[in-house]
């Protein structure tokens, strides 16, 4: 694990270090901190990530197309690739953001 913490900005892409999960930051947190997935800090995609060390799926594993939020800081992560781990920020598990789909309009 590299010592330098990731800079968390809108558009930053994330990859779990211990499962296949990937994500992108939709809304940055109000304060910097560490995002983890499966208990380990996330890395930039391609930076040795994608390992599947995690053998047991988390209770609520990261699902592709779902948005996860940290109420305290406003952090919002879109899961772009599913995995066994779950996203957390500063030790707090991110919660699923319930989206109310609208009727198709285009």
């Amino acid at each position: 694990m590299s010592g330098e913490p990731m800079k968390l900005a809108a558009g930053t892409k994330l990859a779990s270090a211990v499962c296949n999960a990937q994500g992108i930051i939709i809304r940055p947190p109000s304060e910097q901190g560490v995002i983890t997935c499966g208990g380990e800090p996330v890395t930039a995609p391609g930076a040795g990530a994608g390992a599947t060390q995690l053998t047991d799926a988390a209770e609520a594993p990261a699902l592709i197309g779902k948005r996860y939020v940290d109420e305290a800081t406003g952090l919002e992560v879109l899961c772009t690739k599913g995995g066994k781990g779950a996203f957390a920020f500063e030790g707090r598990p991110l919660t699923l953001k319930e989206a109310k789909p609208l009727p198709a309009s285009d």
């Binding site: 592709i64 948005r67 879109l78 989206a99 789909p101 609208l102």
Partner: peptide
Amino acid sequence: LSTIEFLG
């Protein structure tokens, strides 16, 4: 993202 459910 705000109007469409992924693969909905």
